[in-house]
């Protein structure tokens, strides 16, 4: 296949935090252990923010979207399904106007965040976890399993990701599990490939050979030596996959294959059926698109920064 950049992934992941722990007051009670952990985490986040300001901005933006999604039932000014006078312009009651059925735009955008975040998060989590397990297994076990399995990966990657999702959803109907599976199915092979090539490199590293000669079991080597060293890679792919999943879900919604109406969804708000209303009032088309773009932008900023931060050898890609 195309020459993939070999991710280094060899440096130990994360900070051990030993230095910070040593600095903790000697008389700290054992029950305060979680406080130290918390402080270590916060210290890590602060360091990340200092070194990658764009990534920190992305993180803040993403958290804002997540908060919006989580509290949609509290903060949305109207019921996103309640109809009224269609295509109103901005007013105090409807800050972003109303759509073609008179539903409040702002409320639909807020509730749409819930759909996008939920599907994006689940789909990327599924693909990253599946990619991690299958990639490590395929690289570590090798042999016939690897050979056969890589052909499966070839087969799936030979098909445009979005088209694959379209086929699956069009065949099995648009429901949450089908949409999640369709998106994850397309994005997993890339993760498998990268994790596998990283595992192949790790297999020959001295500390793995040492563990093997010390009699560690295969499973222990995989779990204690391989997996921790591909975690940073997994995290990066999780973030980038999250952005891809939001885009894919929106595209499905646009094509009428997203979560079924009337559930508020950014993609379906832009669906082809609404084009006549958009021609009457382009604002109907503006806000959902801005919402998708912003969400994806934040996640991408975070993902790029994570990659630079965790694995500088991939910088710039």
């Amino acid at each position: 296949m195309t020459a993939e950049h070999e991710p280094a992934g060899l440096q130990m992941v994360g900070e051990t935090g030993v230095g910070r722990e040593a600095l903790a007051p000697a008389g700290a009670r054992p029950s305060a252990a979680w406080q130290r952990t918390l402080r270590r985490w916060l210290g890590g986040v602060a360091r990340f923010a200092r070194r990658e300001p764009a990534g920190a901005a992305g993180l803040v933006g993403l958290l804002a979207f997540a908060a919006m999604a989580a509290s949609a039932n509290v903060i949305s000014p109207h019921d996103p399904l309640a109809t009224g006078i269609p295509l109103q312009r901005f007013s105090a009651t409807h800050p972003l106007g109303t759509d073609q059925l008179g539903r409040d735009m702002l409320s639909r955008i807020i509730w749409g965040a819930r759909t996008a975040m939920l599907i994006g998060a689940i789909a990327s989590a599924v693909s990253v976890l599946a990619g991690l397990v299958l990639g490590v297994l395929s690289g570590f076990v090798g042999g016939v399993f690897d050979l056969v399995f890589q052909r499966v990966v070839d087969a799936v990657t030979a098909f445009p990701v979005l088209l694959l999702a379209l086929v699956v959803v069009a065949l099995f109907g648009a429901s949450l599990p089908v949409i999640v599976a369709a998106i994850a199915l397309g994005s997993t092979p890339t993760v498998i490939r990268v994790i596998r090539s990283s595992t192949l490199a790790l297999k020959e590293v001295t500390f793995v050979l040492a563990a093997r000669s010390a009699g560690a079991s295969q499973i222990r080597i995989m779990w204690r030596h391989i997996v921790p060293n591909v975690t940073s890679l997994t995290l990066v792919f999780g973030a980038l996959g999250f952005a891809q999943a939001i885009l894919a879900e929106a595209a499905l919604g646009y094509l009428g294959l997203g979560v079924p109406p009337p559930t508020p969804d950014w993609g379906s708000m832009l669906s082809a059926g609404a084009i006549n209303y958009m021609l009457q009032d382009p604002w109907v088309a503006v806000f959902p698109g801005v919402a998708i773009s912003l969400a994806v932008l934040f996640v991408n900023l975070l993902g790029d920064a994570l990659r630079d931060y965790l694995d500088p050898s991939l910088r710039g890609w």
């Binding site: 646009y254 832009l270 773009s293 912003l294």
Partner: peptide, 22 residues
């Protein structure tokens, strides 16, 4: 370029049909 990666193509396409028309 980061923005270019974030903007969904179907939205851009729709806007390119809607805005010139309006």
């Amino acid at each position: 370029s980061v923005v270019g990666l974030a903007v969904p193509g179907f939205w851009l396409g729709t806007m390119l049909i809607v805005l010139p028309s309006v």
